[in-house]
Amino acid sequence: RLHIEVEGTELMKKLVEEAKRRNLNVRAKVENGKWIIEID
Rank of each mutant, 00 (worst) to 15 (best):
I36A: 01
G8R: 08
E17R: 09
V30T: 10
E7K: 09
N25E: 11
N25K: 10
R27H: 14
E7S: 12
V6W: 07
G8K: 12
G33Q: 03
K29I: 12
K34G: 06
T9K: 10
R22P: 02
V6G: 09
K13D: 05
M12R: 01
E31T: 04
R21A: 12
E31V: 14
N25H: 13
E31F: 02
E38G: 00
K34S: 07
I4S: 05
I37E: 01
G8L: 14
L15D: 01
E17F: 05
G8S: 15
I4R: 05
K29A: 09
K34W: 12
N32Y: 03
H3Y: 14
K20E: 09
G33V: 00
N23S: 09
R22L: 14
E5V: 15
E7H: 13
L11H: 11
K13Q: 14
K13R: 14
E10G: 07
D40W: 15
L2F: 09
R21V: 06
V26S: 01
H3S: 11
E7T: 12
A28W: 07
R21I: 09
N25S: 08
R22N: 13
V30G: 06
V30W: 15
N25G: 09
E38N: 04
K20A: 08
H3T: 15
E18S: 08
H3L: 14
L11G: 06
K29N: 08
E38R: 03
I37Y: 01
E17H: 06
R1K: 12
K29P: 00
K29C: 12
I36T: 04
G33H: 02
N32A: 02
R27K: 13
E7Q: 12
N23I: 04
I36D: 03
E31S: 10
E18L: 14
L11F: 09
I36H: 04
E17A: 12
V6R: 02
L11R: 09
L15T: 03
H3A: 12
V30E: 15
E31L: 09
G8N: 15
L15P: 00
R22A: 12
H3F: 13
K34P: 00
E7A: 11
V26H: 00
L11I: 11
E17Q: 08
R1F: 14
E5S: 11
K14D: 05
N23T: 01
L15G: 00
R1I: 14
I36M: 03
N32T: 01
G8A: 12
G8V: 11
E5D: 09
I39K: 00
L15E: 01
K29Q: 08
I39R: 00
I4N: 04
L11Q: 13
G33L: 03
A28H: 03
K14E: 10
L15S: 00
E10K: 08
L15N: 00
V6F: 08
V6Y: 07
N32M: 01
V30H: 15
V30C: 15
R27I: 15
D40M: 11
L15M: 08
V6I: 10
K34V: 08
E10V: 04
L15H: 02
V16W: 09
W35F: 07
E38K: 05
N23M: 03
K14H: 10
E18T: 05
R22M: 12
T9V: 13
L2K: 09
N32L: 03
R1Q: 11
E17I: 09
A28E: 03
V6M: 07
E7F: 15
E7I: 14
L2H: 10
L24A: 05
L24V: 07
I4M: 09
V16S: 03
M12K: 02
E5I: 15
V6H: 04
L24W: 03
I39M: 06
N23F: 06
V16H: 03
I37L: 04
K34Y: 10
A28Q: 04
E38D: 11
V26E: 02
K20F: 08
E38P: 00
I4G: 04
R1S: 12
G33D: 07
L15A: 03
N32F: 02
E38I: 14
L15F: 09
V6A: 07
E18A: 12
G33F: 00
I37Q: 01
E5W: 12
R1G: 11
A28L: 14
I4A: 05
G8P: 05
K13E: 13
K13A: 09
W35Y: 07
A28D: 02
V16Y: 08
L24H: 06
E5N: 07
K13P: 02
K29G: 06
H3D: 08
E10D: 13
I37F: 01
M12E: 02
E17V: 05
V16M: 11
R21E: 08
E18H: 07
E31R: 08
K34H: 13
E31I: 14
L11Y: 06
I36F: 04
E31Q: 09
E5Q: 10
R27L: 11
G33T: 01
K34D: 07
E38A: 04
I37P: 02
V26N: 00
V26K: 00
L24S: 03
K29F: 15
E31K: 07
L2W: 09
D40Y: 14
G8F: 14
K14T: 08
R27F: 05
I39V: 07
D40T: 13
V30R: 15
V16T: 03
R21H: 08
V30M: 15
V26A: 04
E10N: 08
K20G: 05
L24Y: 01
V26M: 03
K20S: 06
K34E: 08
L11A: 14
I4E: 05
G33R: 00
E31H: 09
